[in-house]
């Protein structure tokens, strides 16, 4: 029983944390959020240089070959800085799928090398997401077709691009025609199911980071803003709002870590653990958004306050890779299954 992280993982997080803090002061973050693309190409190039896109790419393809447990330290940082979805979708979710394909496949290795080098963006068109995110930034899109997994080049996909309430997201309705030459794997159902879990855990981590960001901002605001001759944060009615958010965040962390461990070790309970993580982290983000706006008062309702950037992102991610109803029913199915492992001795059973 060990919920701690190893030194490499912690050092990598520390480096990325310093990098993002330096690169993304609030005014730059807002500027990127409001640009046409919803993200900055230059920032993306620098993230590649930091090794972020190659984090879980196998060493043979130029990556660092770290597993899901390393990612749960990073996705909260990416959420904290409202990094656009294409990074996690490509470098974590799609990379997880590609790495799981049989070694020696020419396209697998080409794509993984491209991801590590920052030259290839990959979108995943999973059925749980009716809209494909950042299709316009992706060179390749992965789709499932009758149990087969296909990789299609962007030119082979017809899509229309819509904007989201979160200005950093571009949503595409796609239609594809898989062909024999686009097929990556014939029997891909298990990998495809695992990809859903990885997508959910990737979003969960970002939601946790968004929650922390909104909490930090709200604490700062409530400590400065004065009414009745005192900082509003001194009133219990206000500070308790933020204490409740802190509680949600702290209790979501181990749930997220548990899910990552399950994914890294191919545990059979991964559906349950990743759904639980998605629910717990998104709930924290949701509460942080709701209470953050409340604590900011009318300022929280303005375009000018950066809080809205994180709030809208939390809202969008809430239903990305499965909405609450989807994940709650997966938890219910697992717990109520005939062969469910219940009883005190099964808390950490695989």
């Amino acid at each position: 029983m060990d919920f701690t992280f190893n030194e490499d993982q912690l050092a990598f997080r520390e480096a990325i944390s310093r990098f993002l803090a330096a690169e993304l002061p609030p005014e730059v973050l807002r500027k990127n959020w409001e640009t046409e693309d919803g993200c900055s190409r230059e920032l993306h190039r620098k993230m590649v240089e930091q090794g972020l896109t190659g984090l879980s790419v196998p060493e043979a393809q130029g990556g660092l070959e770290m597993d899901d447990t390393a990612w749960v330290l990073l996705t909260p940082l990416l959420g904290y800085y409202a990094i656009a979805d294409s990074v996690v979708d490509t470098a974590y979710t799609a990379t997880g799928l590609l790495s799981a394909l049989p070694e020696g496949d020419h396209r697998r290795e080409e794509l993984l090398t491209g991801i590590a080098g920052g030259d290839v963006g990959v979108a995943v068109a999973h059925q749980v997401n009716p809209l494909v995110v950042d299709m316009d930034l992706a060179d390749v899109v992965l789709v499932e077709f009758e149990g087969e997994i296909h990789a299609l080049n962007q030119e082979a996909v017809s899509y229309e691009c819509n904007t989201s309430i979160d200005s950093s997201r571009r949503l595409g309705r796609i239609s594809v025609q898989p062909a024999p030459e686009s097929r990556l794997l014939e029997n891909g159902r298990d990998i495809w199911a695992e990809t859903l879990n990885r997508g959910a855990v990737g979003v969960a981590g970002q939601a946790l980071g968004l929650a922390q960001r909104m909490l930090d901002m709200s604490v700062e605001y409530a400590s400065q803003r004065q009414q009745f001759g005192k900082p509003v944060g001194s009133f219990q009615a206000v500070k308790h709002h933020l204490a409740d958010v802190a509680e949600k965040i702290e209790f979501a962390k181990p749930v997220l870590y548990r899910a990552a461990h399950a994914l890294a070790n191919n545990e059979r309970g991964s559906d349950l653990y990743s759904s639980h993580a998605k629910l717990a982290c998104c709930e924290a983000a949701w509460l942080a958004a709701r209470h953050g706006i409340q604590v900011y008062g009318a300022m929280g309702y303005t375009w000018e306050a950066d809080l809205q950037i994180f709030m809208k992102r939390a809202w969008a991610l809430d239903s990305y890779w499965g909405d609450r109803a989807f994940h709650k029913s997966r938890v219910a199915e697992a717990v109520l299954a005939d062969d469910a492992l219940i009883g005190p001795q099964h808390t950490f059973e695989e």
């Binding site: 809209l131 309430i165 949503l171 969008a316 239903s319």
Partner: peptide, 8 residues
């Protein structure tokens, strides 16, 4: 649901 965030 998931289409809530879509801006037409």
């Amino acid at each position: 649901g998931p289409e809530a965030e879509l801006i037409d």
